[in-house]
Design a protein around this nucleic acid. Structure first.
Length: 482
RNA sequence: GCGGAAGUAGCUCAUUUGGUAGAGCGAUAGCCUUCCAAGCUAUAGGUGGCCGGUUCGAGCCCGGUCUUCCGCUCCA
């Protein structure tokens, strides 16, 4: 385990050293739990996003993609339950340093009381919670001598409100402005556009709406590199189904999503399902697809059966009918008619997927050369199809007309995939540099190329090389990246 | 948020009771080189995380702060 943590440190260092990930605002000492993607990282992230987008929209006739704004009407977050559930008064015990949600603390105490006294206290608490009376809540805790379970003392801090949503104002004059939130999840942008997409796209149930985009959560503690950030990117697909068929689709997406992760090179044994025991207020079934990160098994993607909760809530708050008319016939030969569709959600953290790919790819290799000396390299074995740079074109020498041939090849290839050109330094050093950034293919132009139009292609993962026709380079690399 | 540890060049580290910072690797430019970090030459990079205090003098001592890591805590 200690080894794995060290390895995680090395992955983080490597990400910085080779332009994958930088800490945000590093010039100013950084901003906690916020990271920037560098020149390599941005490309890898884009490739992952593109793969997902393609698998969802292009590969499914009944899934379309949208791009909703980060800002949304404030009522959206009341309807979704985020205003109520994403904001909890918390209190810390100064002796044990244990933090409690105020309502949980009081409810636990109430469980020890007589029924009548308990109900009175709950009523009092609800009143204070509704009024956002934090001082009153503290008084309630202190006058009833509610103790911490660990320290058995009543030495409490003030009650503080932790709102997990970031807020800002629309409009330039603060007093006149409405408080709006930066979305804590992208899903709501899909739900509020359900009717727009269904009608304009003439979508028939079952169908899905996919979206990628930033979401924001003001985590109390955000750590573990890019695993938990305050600003992060989600890739979500909400699949709308006929009520009663949700479990069927839930199981379908559960398998489909796991297979997708395997298709981008994540080994099956590094993935597992974790069923939620305690379900969120909107769900009738939920599970995580977990990956074995360097710091343990953690959620990579969530599959949730969200029932009709979201659409119903938005219908209620907007006072608009959000329904679907289903002309298909049921067992009795009648149309299913009007109903509020049920939703099965798949939601991947793109940053977590990035971390998954990088932690699998990072490898340190050591071996003994033929002359008996030790050699080593650090290599990112990123699957070719998502690697940021696909091909490095390397003239063996920067003279004798070799750069000219190489440049010609570069011009032929670069409309088709991302290439890197380098004529500096010894060939071995250039190979090592390409290993470090994860370029799967290197092609070297040498003097023999001038005689018979062949080049050496060198494979990153095996370090083996072979002679291929110059004219075949583009096709071979393109095929290798499928 | 609490407790512990750390922060010196892009990276890994030196500077061992306080006397205005060095190396290796890397980078850049050139020379030389026919396939896995070769060699030679030159160059660039640090107001020692930041702010303040003690001192004739602080990378080193003290306080604060920011960031990171570890353990708790939190994660609808």
């Amino acid at each position: 385990m200690a080894n794995e943590i060290n390895n995680f440190q090395e992955i983080i260092s490597h990400c910085k050293e080779y332009g994958y990930i930088f800490q945000s605002s590093e010039l100013y000492d950084g901003l906690s739990a916020v990271y920037d993607y560098g020149q390599m990282g941005a490309q890898l992230k884009k490739n992952l996003r593109d793969e997902w987008w393609k698998s969802m929209t292009q590969m499914h006739d009944n899934i379309v993609g949208i791009d909703a704004a980060i800002f949304m009407h404030p009522t959206v977050w009341k309807a979704s339950g985020h205003v109520d559930n994403f904001s909890d008064p918390m209190i810390d015990n100064k002796d044990s340093n244990k933090r409690y949600r105020v309502d949980h603390l009081i409810e636990a105490h109430v469980a020890t009381l007589e029924k009548e006294a308990g109900e009175a206290m709950i009523a009092e608490m609800d009143k204070l919670l509704a009024a956002d009376d934090l001082t009153g809540l503290k008084t309630l805790i202190e006058t009833n001598k509610i103790k911490c379970n660990i320290s058995k003392t009543c030495n409490w801090t003030d009650v503080r409100q932790f709102n997990l949503m970031f807020s800002t104002q629309i409009g330039s004059v603060a007093e006149e402005a409405d408080t709006i939130y930066l979305r804590p999840e992208t899903a709501q942008g899909i739900f509020v556009n359900f009717l727009n997409v269904q009608k304009t796209g003439r979508m028939k149930i079952p169908f899905g709406i996919a979206q990628t985009g930033k979401a924001f959560r003001n985590e109390i503690v955000a750590r573990q590199f890019i695993f938990r950030m305050r600003e992060f990117e989600q890739m979500e697909m909400q699949f709308f189904v006929r009520p009663g068929t949700q479990m069927e689709w839930y199981n379908y997406w559960k398998d489909a999503r796991k297979k997708w992760h395997e298709s981008i090179g994540i080994p099956a044994e590094k993935l597992r399902f974790h069923d939620h025991v305690k379900l969120a207020h909107y769900a009738d079934a939920a599970l995580d697809i977990e990956f074995e990160f360097p710091f343990g098994w953690k959620e990579l993607e969530g599959i949730h059966s969200r029932t009709d909760f979201d659409l119903s809530q938005h219908a209620k708050y907007s006072k608009k009918k959000i329904q679907y008319f289903d002309n298909d016939l049921n067992a009795e030969g009648k149309a299913y008619g009007n109903y509020t569709p049920f939703v099965v959600e798949t939601s991947v953290g793109l940053d977590r997927l990035f971390l998954t790919v990088i932690s699998l790819a990072y490898q340190e290799e050591k071996w003994t050369k033929e002359d008996g000396t030790e050699d080593s390299r650090v290599v990112l074995k990123i699957p070719a199809k998502i690697a940021p740079t696909k091909l490095a074109i390397l003239p063996l020498l920067k003279k004798d007309g070799l750069p000219e041939i190489a440049t010609e090849l570069l011009n032929e290839c670069k409309p088709h995939f991302h290439c890197f050109y380098e004529e500096k330094d010894a060939i071995g050093k250039r190979y090592r540099r390409m290993d470090a950034i994860g370029t799967p293919f290197c092609v070297t132009i040498d003097h023999q190329t001038k005689e018979d139009n062949t080049v050496t292609i060198r494979y990153r993962d095996t370090m083996t090389q072979e002679r291929i026709p110059l004219s075949e380079v583009k096709n071979i690399v393109a095929k290798g990246c499928l």
